[in-house]
């Protein structure tokens, strides 16, 4: 058996094809990347990273459904656990930075430039 996805053409009638989820996920990921690039506030950059992680999660779950495998959903579970750990640490770092610099603007955090 093969062929999970099918073209967008001719799919408007019944179920949502895999490709629709993948396109949505790609768009969300792109928005996340743009956010990281254009924003200067460390907290918002962090949120954009979370957005990217979620875009990837959507891909995993979509593939899990269309390929008939549970692995995707389990990986999403792990991604969430790691994301929680990452947020706890990342926010702690931001708080520590704010104590030293009175700012969360990434342009002000340039000690390594010497």
């Amino acid at each position: 058996m093969r062929g999970a996805g099918c073209g967008v053409r001719g799919a408007m009638t019944g179920t949502v094809p895999l490709s629709a989820y993948l396109i949505l996920s790609a768009a969300l990921f792109a928005i996340g990347v743009i956010g990281v690039v254009i924003r200067r506030n460390a907290l918002i950059i962090f949120m954009a990273i979370e957005l990217m992680l979620n875009a990837v999660n959507l891909t995993f779950v979509a593939f899990s459904k269309f390929l008939g495998s549970m692995d995707g959903q389990i990986i999403v579970f792990f991604v969430m656990a790691v994301a929680a750990a990452e947020v706890a640490l990342g926010l702690a770092i931001i708080i520590a930075l704010y104590r030293n610099k009175e700012s969360v603007n990434v342009d002000d955090i340039n000690l390594l430039k010497g």
């Binding site: 093969r2 999970a4 396109i23 790609a26 008939g68 495998s69």
Partner: peptide, 25 residues
């Protein structure tokens, strides 16, 4: 970025997922 997403959309839209289907229908 818009171009890339568009390109991806076109590429994905005409693509058939390879691979074998798992047992979890």
């Amino acid at each position: 970025v818009a171009l890339l997403v568009l390109e991806l959309a076109v590429a994905i839209g005409s693509w058939i997922a390879p691979g074998i289907r798992g047992p979890y229908t």
